[in-house]
Design a binder for these strands. Structure first.
Lengths: 237, 237
DNA sequence: GGGCATTTGTACGCCACCGTACAAGTGGCA
DNA sequence: TGCCACTTGTACGGTGGCGTACAAATGCCC
């Protein structure tokens, strides 16, 4: 169990922070802190969701799969976001696989408790539905990026999205894992990273990528980055 | 105005059909029939939504855009589906552009009326949220298809999705328009259609594509087609 | 401090799809 | 009936990313 309502006010999660005091009190008793460990699979595609997670720190990938085991990341959830949001849409099965990419922490609530709580607070339900909207926007943009962007542009977009959700300018990520997220060759990621480094946007060392020049990186990815971010600020920020 | 509740029971829209009698009575007074004309832009990206549409017949594309005017279709709505669903997520701005691809009919409800109605019926709200889930699944699969599928596979997927939503086995569509939807060259669509025709799956005449062998077409698109369709059946009947 | 697994750099031929272009076919309308 | 706008067929070289492969670099553990 997590403590008093004041703790929630200082939780890094914007979604929790933005709640009314009443909603916080309502949610409070059900929240349990849970560590997010690297490569934890929080949700499996098309499987029942046991808990919903308010992410406080770290990075979680939502990954779409098909019957031929092809995989692509369709969205990212980090601080201020929620994993297992499908629960608020009246069904308990997960649409995508959810995997922890960067370790962190979360506050989780069981599916049954969540259903009870949102049934008794329309305002809480609505706030979570706002996040559904942000997520849909992110998915739409991913579909666009995958269809029309080059590997290098898509990588730039991904780095910006990760940067938004993590403290500091550098974070750990192997080329291999990035290539799976983007659905491209590992070697393709290596080359694209070199190119972005050559332009001075980032520095890439073994296992660690550092954002050097965020403004230019945004410019480079422009069009593919930005829309869901504005949404997020407008609705939840 | 649309008539008595019995009319709703016979509406082609599954979402309407599946409602309880109470919810139907509630919705009834606000519904107005509206023709969907070829190339009507029902919603514009990031603009306020004036009406939500229960599609009865025809085909509507949801199209994602960026600031560089790149465009890709991210989802299709037809019979049994809804355009403008963002309204049930607590915000009145459309995520994507919505364009009529094949003419048809719809029942529309104004944004303010809809908000009133879903505020007074949780069950109606929940049914619409079920559709949000189906739509998210479709978007996820589109992101996957765009990232990993060949033009020919994606075209097969698109034809199947259209076939699901239209009466009969053939429907009108120029290569040009298809190419915009898939985000590829017009010439690429022409070639891909020929290939599918060569395999005996379809016949393609000037402006009209006919599905000849649905089963084989599904097999060919396998992996990229099927997931959202199962969802739709499971949740909305 | 040496060995080993992991990660990264880089190369090779290949092919799907691109951008572009233009001719041929087709239907609508004056 | 003939013209015109639209649609479709097909071709061309160019290239981005693929699949694959292997060596070099790095970090970790014994």
């Amino acid at each position: 169990m997590y403590g008093g309502p004041d703790d929630l006010r200082t939780s890094p999660s914007k979604i929790l922070n933005g709640l009314s005091l009443d909603d916080m009190r309502l949610l409070q008793p059900y929240l349990v802190r849970q560590e997010l460990c690297y490569r934890d699979e929080l949700l499996s595609a098309n499987q029942p969701i046991s808990h919903m997670y308010f992410v406080e720190a770290g990075l979680v990938s939502l990954i779409s799969t098909d019957s031929r085991r092809r995989e692509v990341e369709v969205a990212i959830a980090g601080r201020d976001e929620v994993v297992g949001i499908e629960l608020v849409l009246g069904d308990n099965r997960s649409i995508n696989k959810a995997v922890v990419q960067v370790a962190g922490t979360s506050l989780r609530i069981s599916a049954s408790d969540l259903l009870e709580v949102i049934a008794s607070s329309r305002s809480l339900h609505l706030r979570l539905l706002n996040y559904v909207r942000v997520l849909m926007t992110q998915m739409s943009q991913t579909a666009l990026a995958n269809g029309k962007g080059s590997v290098e542009e898509r990588l730039a977009r991904w780095l910006l999205m990760a940067h938004d959700r993590l403290e500091g300018d550098d974070y750990p990520q192997t080329h291999e894992f990035l290539s799976i997220m983007l659905g491209v060759r590992r070697a393709g990621v290596t080359v694209a990273l070199h190119n972005l480094e050559g332009k001075g946007f980032i520095r890439s060392n073994r296992g660690i990528i550092t954002i050097l020049n965020r403004a230019d990186l945004e410019l480079y990815a422009d069009g593919l980055y930005g829309v869901p971010e504005k949404e997020h600020k407008r609705l939840l920020g």
